[in-house]
Design a protein around this nucleic acid. Structure first.
Lengths: 162, 162
DNA sequence: ACAATTTAATTAACGTGTTAACATTATAAC
DNA sequence: GTTATAATGTTAACACGTTAATTAAATTGT
């Protein structure tokens, strides 16, 4: 039987005594969105300063990296692979074009589409940053271990299907 | 010895043949930040429309939820628990105060600090949304299973320590 | 008590996230 | 072939993320 309420007693939570945390069906699930955010931030806080030194945001870098891998992509492909919504991507690409890191050409077969490619300075920026980036990957692996990383990736991919 | 380059050959990637994906030490690690993003988005895409019906963003809702649990918190405590940076929190609290969902009182012992509390309409909003929210939690559990959720949470917490 | 330092919260500036509406071009229906 | 529909990318509006600078108040050292 739960103890009687003492309304005059000091307290710093409102957790109802009739519904302790251990019985709630979704206590763990409730924490998932923030746990994902915190884990991601733990990683990004390593990459961000390094990218900032070269005047890149992580999203700008994701676009650069993808264009380095695929040589040419249209906006829809970039949006899907970088997981960036079209309105954000429009702004990011405009920024990178202004800085002469990326160029666009209109597709001749479908004039609604634009094909994006790294410029020479864009490729140079990629090569310049890459070593630092790999250093961080290795630190993560050293801390966490490849097995756990793959286990985690599997779970995340499955959750992403939801 | 790597094959000769064929500059005229069609291709859609630039992956160097001398360094196939299976040998790269960080292929999995490289995918972690986006995998975390995608997993989180899978969850948030369920919550967002429901919150939007009541004119809440997920961040605003996080603040409401925390004030419901803890009854009164200062900005620093809210920032830490909701994982929201102080400048964002300032704006969010200003918004919620304008809507009379939250009130602030200056701490008498430390006049730099402000203590925030839900108003009656704030508590009402919380109660109104809560059932929908729990419904989504249960859907997630039904899809993913509690064991996997707890396993995933453990891995995420460990990664967050990095 | 007083100056220097530290801390809590805010402001400023810029970039991104999110939704809705829009212009342009392709495709489908008829 | 013309009209209706769908798809690609952009614009607009608002909220949040991120870093640096700022204000006000507390704390420390002397």
């Amino acid at each position: 039987m739960p103890p009687l309420k003492r309304p005059s007693a000091p307290r710093d939570t409102k957790s109802p005594a009739s519904n302790p945390a251990s019985e709630l069906p979704h206590e763990a699930t409730k924490a998932m969105p923030i746990a994902l955010l915190r884990a991601r931030e733990a990683l990004m806080s390593r990459f961000r300063p390094m990218l900032a030194e070269h005047d890149f945001t992580s999203q700008q870098w994701r676009v650069i990296r993808l264009l380095n891998e695929h040589s040419t992509l249209d906006a829809a492909q970039l949006a899907e692979k970088a997981f960036i919504l079209p309105p954000s991507l429009t702004r990011i690409l405009a920024n990178l074009e202004t800085r002469d890191l990326v160029t666009r050409v209109q597709s001749s077969s479908d004039r609604r589409r634009y094909l994006f490619t790294l410029t020479a300075p864009g490729e140079e920026a990629f090569r310049k940053i890459s070593p630092d980036r790999i250093k961080v990957y290795k630190e993560i692996e050293a801390y966490f271990g490849k097995e756990k990383i793959n286990l985690l990736l599997g779970l995340l991919d499955e959750l992403a299907q939801f």
